[in-house]
Simulated scan of single mutants.
Amino acid sequence: MPHIHLIEGPVGAGKSTYARALSEQEHAPRLILDQWMTALFAPDRPSTDTLAWYIARKERCVQQIWRVAQDILATGSGVVLELGLIQRRDRARLYGWVDQSGHTLTVHVLDADREVRRERVRQRNRDKGDTFAVEVPDHFFEMASDTWEAPDEHECRERDVRFLRSDGA
């Protein structure tokens, strides 16, 4: 049965780089929320009230990505999902969908020291390299970092959760 790999972690933890490597290793396509959000909505992004605007669109994107993932899984291929589900309740909803689908899931949780992540994000903003999808200002980095909820004991007991450090710590 095809397998689902969910990659999560705080902003700047190295998720996109890890997703690319895992995708190659597993011969499974990547479905990355930031790429979808940029392609579909970046031209319409308002200059104010961006959080409410983002949340509404993120929800629709995650639902559509899941639909596409189901189509891919039906072909016999696994998928690598990077969905920005930084809060436990959002991951719990995805877990319900996964359970209904009958597929197996591994959650890869990446993390790094906050200062390392902040500098990575700033560097990515400057370079706009191959993992760049959208500019992440410092205030958004701080808000997203403060909002991040790592999997707790219950989540780890219920799921195959693997923690990875991307800063060598």
Score class of each variant (00 low, 15 high):
residue 63 Q to V: 06
residue 70 Q to R: 00
residue 59 E to I: 05
residue 49 D to L: 15
residue 53 W to Q: 05
residue 68 V to I: 09
residue 37 M to W: 03
residue 41 F to C: 06
residue 41 F to P: 04
residue 63 Q to Y: 09
residue 73 L to H: 10
residue 44 D to M: 11
residue 48 T to S: 12
residue 50 T to M: 15
residue 46 P to K: 02
residue 36 W to C: 00
residue 40 L to I: 07
residue 60 R to E: 14
residue 50 T to D: 13
residue 55 I to M: 11
residue 65 I to L: 08
residue 62 V to G: 13
residue 42 A to G: 07
residue 65 I to H: 03
residue 37 M to C: 00
residue 45 R to V: 01
residue 55 I to V: 11
residue 43 P to A: 01
residue 36 W to L: 02
residue 62 V to A: 10
residue 39 A to C: 02
residue 66 W to A: 13
residue 57 R to D: 13
residue 40 L to K: 06
residue 41 F to V: 09
residue 65 I to A: 04
residue 56 A to L: 05
residue 66 W to G: 12
residue 57 R to C: 12
residue 66 W to F: 15
residue 42 A to T: 01
residue 46 P to N: 02
residue 43 P to R: 02
residue 42 A to N: 04
residue 59 E to T: 14
residue 50 T to Y: 15
residue 38 T to F: 04
residue 53 W to P: 06
residue 48 T to K: 00
residue 71 D to C: 11
residue 68 V to D: 11
residue 45 R to Y: 01
residue 50 T to S: 11
residue 58 K to H: 06
residue 57 R to K: 14
residue 47 S to L: 09
residue 51 L to T: 13
residue 65 I to Y: 00
residue 37 M to N: 00
residue 68 V to Q: 10
residue 67 R to W: 12
residue 42 A to C: 08
residue 46 P to Y: 09
residue 64 Q to N: 15
residue 60 R to W: 12
residue 53 W to A: 00
residue 67 R to Y: 10
residue 37 M to Q: 01
residue 50 T to V: 14
residue 45 R to S: 05
residue 54 Y to A: 06
residue 74 A to Q: 14
residue 66 W to N: 15
residue 53 W to F: 14
residue 69 A to P: 06
residue 41 F to N: 07
residue 40 L to F: 08
residue 55 I to H: 14
residue 71 D to L: 10
residue 62 V to T: 14
residue 54 Y to L: 01
residue 60 R to P: 10
residue 69 A to C: 05
residue 68 V to P: 02
residue 67 R to F: 11
